[in-house]
């Protein structure tokens, strides 16, 4: 029987801030796997450790213990794997969607997507073509040359999603992607993420505190006080 290839594998991941008596365990013994094309939610209240988990998987925050494997590559095993180019891995394997869209204010919608491609060494023309295609597919064809300040919250978040998808990453990590949106726009964004997970065969890991936004997710994990509880049915 073939071994299942996971997009994200997290085994006994622990992150401790500080040392000695002041040490705080932000996440403890987290273990879970996400398959390509799966939409998974990490649900939990503020301070539960869900963002810490996301930053460890996102190659931003070095885990204290445990193992993280992204698209078959062990990126952390009791600390970062030596010789790892974290920036290159983030560029090539990961896509990020933020709470407040984090679009670069002085770039147009098109340029915000192009920058992610150009950073990954695509030529200007290739980047422009791919970015336009992505934005058009997300119904933003009429907003290509608008600056973020001219976009609605939902539109800005869709541009951010296009940027996250630009390099066709195996894994998309979303940090409270609906927090700055109203309920209707929030649900639209979540529906879009679900569609993208299937269409692009990407693993999408969403951390959120809003349980109303996780309808239709493939799997949902509840985090409380740094511990992942059992998977709850969606």
């Amino acid at each position: 029987m073939d071994k299942i290839m996971y997009a994200i594998e997290v085994e006994n991941l622990t992150k401790i801030y500080g040392k000695g008596e002041t040490a705080v365990t932000a996440i403890a013994d987290a273990t879970f796997h996400v398959k390509p094309g799966e939409l998974v939610a990490i649900l939990g209240p503020s301070g539960s450790g869900k963002t810490t988990l996301l930053t460890a998987i996102g190659l931003i925050n070095e885990p204290t213990h445990g193992k993280v494997i992204i698209d078959g590559a062990t990126v952390a095993d009791e600390g970062w794997t030596p010789g790892l180019d974290l920036k290159r891995l983030r560029r090539e394997k990961l896509g990020f969607i933020f709470q407040a869209h984090n679009l670069i204010p002085f770039l147009t919608a098109l340029e915000n997507v192009m920058i992610a491609l150009e950073i990954n060494h695509l030529s200007k023309n290739e980047a422009k073509g791919r970015a336009t295609e992505l934005l058009v597919s997300l119904n933003l064809g009429h907003r290509l040359n608008n600056y973020p300040t001219a976009l609605s919250g939902g539109e800005a978040q869709r541009v951010a999603i296009a940027r996250a998808l630009a390099n066709k990453p195996k894994v998309i990590l979303a940090d409270e992607p609906t927090a700055a949106l109203d309920t209707e726009n929030g649900k639209n964004v979540m529906s879009l993420l679900k569609k993208l997970a299937v269409d692009n065969h990407s693993a999408i890991l969403v951390v959120t505190h809003d349980h109303r936004m996780v309808e239709g997710f493939d799997r949902i994990f509840q985090v409380n006080d740094g511990r992942i509880a059992d998977e709850i049915g969606s």
């Binding site: 996102g58 931003i60 920036k87 290159r88 891995l89 983030r90 560029r91 090539e92 990961l94 990020f96 933020f98 984090n102 670069i104 204010p105 002085f106 920058i115 992610a116 950073i119 990954n120 940027r163």
Partner: peptide
């Protein structure tokens, strides 16, 4: 925030 975002999406320091 722009610089942090650029770093997060994998931008090289030279950019």
């Amino acid at each position: 925030k722009v610089i942090a975002t650029l770093k997060l999406i994998g931008s090289q320091n030279r950019v």
